[in-house]
Design a binder for these strands. Sequence first.
DNA 1: AATCTATTCAACTAATTTGTATAATAGTTT
DNA 2: AAACTATTATACAAATTAGTTGAATAGATT
Lengths: 220, 220
Amino acid sequence: MSASSIKEQVYQELSRVTHAISNPKRMELIDVLSQKDYSVEELSKEISMSVASTSQHLQVLKSVKLVNAQRQGNFIIYSITDDSVLRLVSAVKELGFRKIAELERLISDFKADKNILESITINDLLARSKKEKVILIDVRPEDEYKAGHIPNAVSIPLAQLKKRLNELPKNQTIIAYCRGPLCVMAVDAIKILNQKKFKAIRMEDGYVEWKLRQQEINQK
Amino acid sequence: MSASSIKEQVYQELSRVTHAISNPKRMELIDVLSQKDYSVEELSKEISMSVASTSQHLQVLKSVKLVNAQRQGNFIIYSITDDSVLRLVSAVKELGFRKIAELERLISDFKADKNILESITINDLLARSKKEKVILIDVRPEDEYKAGHIPNAVSIPLAQLKKRLNELPKNQTIIAYCRGPLCVMAVDAIKILNQKKFKAIRMEDGYVEWKLRQQEINQK
DNA sequence: AATCTATTCAACTAATTTGTATAATAGTTT
DNA sequence: AAACTATTATACAAATTAGTTGAATAGATT
């Protein structure tokens, strides 16, 4: 175990990258940071973990350049390095959601649990918006919307939805989205809207999925 | 730690996928299997590890459906589940090669070491082959070529190259490829060809990279 | 049916990883 | 310059992982 070949070293280094995302909390951190930059303290709340542990996980991610750290006043703000990280996570999810039986079970439980009758994808949205005018609402917290959103989407954070129902039409279909497939904000939004007799559909994909899809389209 | 939320369970499951490839030997196994199906014994030779350990690694990969096992006579033949696995590995490499300083160093050492003067990519090849007739040779073992290769490529395994030089033209540029960026077979081929005064260039990408690129193109 | 062979299982040790609490640090603000 | 605060480092126990050797298994061949 003295002079290992370059090939072995390369595999060693590459596996450091995957090791960094091979922990549920770190994967969740990447997912949260995919929406918007956050401080350590905010992140520790998001992932329900002590600040010290959160910091440690962030350092693991930083050591393989999956995230960047930058001081802003009293806080250190973490952010995703670039879109290649999003593509990596997207590839993991694609494989996981398709292939792992346990995940399929979890997701179908989840759907049953949430009474999701219909849910569309980015591609459905793109097709639909070509044919008709679509009312698209972004129910994530406002700062995440500000950091980036799907064009023509209106920001109505879940917390404000009940008060702002008058801004929405009753005779048109409303499409609601949030952070993506694992996020329940849009589900809750649909529940509220349906209860109030709006025609509302949930879109599973979020801003990140939209952004990646755009890049694919632009690659032509 | 009793009833964890579905979200946490999903992250848990997803991290099992990344954990499976977060080991150098397992990543190497995936890479080898990306070329062609292999038995456990063959794989154990390829990755220089005991059969028992190789088998254990393969079971980890199988448990998250990254590979399939199938009996064929006395042997159990392992194969990559499907192209989503290739995309995942490709995403890891993309990020790793770009972002990890240590990897950049390793690769530049590697290139210096091998005296690689020029090397092209899949895109270069596609562009070139539109303009002119290209002599493309596949220097991998013949069975890997048989399992799949870039169209119009001729199979000349590295081991046979010296004997078969008469099959190649001296006045045209020859492009050689092997398993991909981490493989040295094409490098050795170029050395031989240049020594014998052929005009030869190495293509870094291999059959897998070509296949993924084709899929991107077809997605339009 | 007996033998053979490739593969997997079991048991074990060494090494690594995880998370928490507490202490130290580094930068901001007053 | 002092006080403050967010973040990171340290130390530790519990849990998990990696690799080896030798035994067991399951299927194919004779």
